[in-house]
Nucleic acid binder design. Structure first.
Lengths: 209, 209
DNA sequence: GTATAATATGAATATAAAGTCATATGAATA
DNA sequence: TATTCATATGACTTTATATTCATATTATAC
């Protein structure tokens, strides 16, 4: 958590610091991100930085917090506009689309979150990763159980397998989107994702007999 | 490429250096890997290291070369023992299994290759990534075209989508395997992969009518 | 056994990073 | 105006890194 000094700052300056940091972390990942670069871009003194944050990790943690918050907003907005009878496949597609939309509008935050999840240094980021739980594959578990009860997806496949497959696929969908070439091609990208989701749906859907 | 001095060394010493470096890169990734750690583990002097390699990058490049070579051996071994009529799904499953087997027997090399592919700093590693081409999604393209011609997989889906899906899925299969918990659970892991591949197959397979 | 070439060595150098601290500035209060 | 408190500052410290280099050791050749 930033010090209270940081929150006393006028929003313009606060944004300058955060934007600079988000840019730096997105470009270089956590360990290669440089405080010196961040303060230069934000046009504040190095000493000031340490008036605002305990250290680099403190800053990073706060940025992830922002990212999670923002992404949940996108997801909740989707869920709220979903009025029909529960249909797992549709629901899953909707979540993926919300994820892509979040990444489209917040590509740096999305990049940072992704890099965190892909990071191997679990020890170090353990407390941060805990924050991500609501966006993890555990989220799918309940949904999948429900869908299997309702006979919407095959139940001859271990729920853990499906959960992991869907969770990971949502990642590489975002990941692929964040690759150059696709970023500025949102309109071409969406139909592609539709096809991918369709492929996976075919595999998990229970045939009506 | 290492200097000729390195190749003049007796194999025991060469292996000591390589093993130490592979271990270090697998544990820490490229930029956080430390030459000091490597030479300490290998029990050679720092100065000696720079008699063998031009720099850190030179060493890394060489290790990737080894990884690619070794993985291709696994793949070729599989392909050679594949005698039946071409069946895309079976072929694809076979490739994935060869990949997992490679990862099982060479977990550090597999970890390093994965981290390279996941790395964002394309500029820096551009020349190395070129080496990986034979293991990339381009490999799938020809296979998929062939399979579509033979009517083995749906042709209402753009070949690029499928190619990317299959390529990425092969990654997360390896990735998931390399996560702790699964590594020492090879026998439980294989059936799980079978199920995952089955799910995707359902989606891309052409129904016989 | 001497000369030459190959290899080994670790102290020294250069660079960059995170984090600290004494001090300066400015705003608010009385 | 004088005092107090919050904020700003950048030089300094510490620590780690990759890389270099002059020199020492060992092996090879004659």
């Amino acid at each position: 958590m930033p010090n209270k000094t940081f929150f006393n700052l006028d929003q313009e300056k606060r944004d300058r610091v955060l934007d600079s940091a988000i840019d730096e972390f997105a470009k270089n990942g956590y360990s290669k991100a440089s405080i010196t670069s961040i303060v230069n871009k934000a046009e504040i003194a190095k000493g000031s930085f340490y008036q605002y944050f305990k250290n680099k990790y403190d800053l990073f943690k706060y940025i992830i917090e922002i990212a999670v918050e923002r992404k949940l907003e996108y997801i909740n907005r989707s869920i709220n506009s979903y009025n029909s009878e529960f249909d797992f496949i549709e629901y899953w597609k909707m979540l993926n689309k919300a994820g892509i939309k979040f990444a489209k509008d917040n590509k740096d935050l999305a990049t940072i979150s992704l890099s965190l999840i892909k990071n191997k240094d679990k020890e170090k980021f353990n407390d941060i990763i805990t924050q991500l739980k609501p966006l993890s594959d555990e989220m799918f578990e309940e949904l999948i159980k429900k869908a299997q009860r309702k006979g919407q997806i095959r139940n001859d496949i271990n729920q853990e397998y499906i959960s992991h497959l869907l969770y990971k696929s949502s990642f590489f969908i975002t990941e692929y989107f964040l690759e150059e070439g696709n970023l500025n091609n949102f309109d071409n990208y969406l139909p592609m994702v539709d096809k991918m989701m369709e492929i996976i749906s075919f595999g998990i859907k229970k045939e009506v007999d």
